[in-house]
């Protein structure tokens, strides 16, 4: 398992698109960790002039309630990375459990899990997320994490299910079964190591979707508006009419960061696709 991961990582790094994506992710991760050192002010300090345009002391201007926009942007990286990777991980774990069990099991379990996957696959994601977020009594990062994970696992589960079903029919799995290996050993040591690239693809796919979904939900005001994140920055920019006052930086900066983070994740996924499908590999 470990050697497989290293091999996947090495192949990824050899791919130009994936390398670009990984580099951008490293930069964002560094910003998230070093935010207190990089940010010129506290992101919650409100003792500056309100709605000030960009200047040397406030490169991105200040918000409608007098906070430094650049500091907010730097600190906001934390929430986006946390929700993105957190929801991506949660969705991938659910997808792996459902997909592997549905692909390997026979009988009613397979039917029920397959049905649940297809159901969640066709229910439109954003409306479901919004309705869920509206029903849940608390508003905050945790709620968004749960909502995004609950709605994001089905695509990965379907892909992993068909891959498991294919692998389960192969000779080496039959050999392992005849050798008397238990079901968990077969799943963990024979099947899952052959799906590492698919798991990685569904992880980055789910993370990309989570970053965008989190921004969308917070923009609609379904998050906790006092959290410092890119989505809430956009929410406040919209609600304080930042565009009318000409403060386009309040809008452009968080949007570009979200786009850059999401495209970095997609770029990594291009590299993973190339591992799984040699036809797409760069010559």
């Amino acid at each position: 398992m470990r050697t497989t991961i290293f091999r996947v990582a090495a192949t990824l790094w050899a791919n130009r698109k994936a390398r670009a994506g990984l580099s951008i992710l490293f930069v964002f991760a560094a910003v998230a960790v070093l935010a207190p050192l990089l940010a010129p002010y506290s992101p919650t300090a409100t003792n500056f002039a309100r709605s000030a345009p960009a200047s040397w002391s406030h490169p991105l201007g200040t918000t409608g309630s007098g906070q430094d926009a650049l500091s907010q942007l730097l600190y906001g990286t934390r929430i986006s990375l946390f929700v993105g990777f957190g929801a991506g991980l949660a969705a991938t774990i659910v997808a792996m459990l459902v997909g592997v069990v549905a692909g390997y099991a026979r009988g009613p379990i397979e039917v029920i899990l397959g049905f649940a996957t297809n159901l969640f696959l066709v229910i439109p994601g954003l409306p479901l997320m919004i309705v869920l977020a509206a029903y849940l009594p608390t508003r905050g990062v945790g709620t968004i994490l749960v909502v995004v994970s609950v709605t994001g696992w089905a695509w990965g589960a379907r892909v992993l299910r068909s891959q498991t079903a294919t692998l389960a029919a192969r000779e080496f799995v039959a050999a392992a079964r005849l050798a008397g290996e238990g079901i968990w050993r077969i799943v963990w040591h024979e099947i899952v190591p052959n799906m590492v690239s698919l798991l990685a693809a569904s992880f980055f796919g789910a993370s990309t979707a989570a970053v965008l979904a989190e921004a969308g939900l917070e923009f609609l005001g379904l998050g906790n508006p006092s959290t410092i994140s890119w989505g809430t920055m956009l929410f406040w920019a919209q609600n304080s009419n930042a565009l009318l006052t000409g403060q386009w930086a309040l809008l452009v900066a968080p949007g570009l960061c979200i786009a850059l983070l999401a495209s970095a994740m997609s770029l990594v996924n291009f590299g993973i696709d190339a591992i799984g499908n040699p036809r797409l590999r760069e010559r």
Binding site: L212, G216, F219, W248, V252, G255, I258, A259, S263
Partner: peptide
């Protein structure tokens, strides 16, 4: 890839502006 990565409400806001 880059276009799909933009949150589309953000594209809307920029076009609106």
């Amino acid at each position: 890839t880059f276009m799909a990565a933009f949150p589309y409400f953000w594209t809307a806001l920029v076009l609106l502006y």
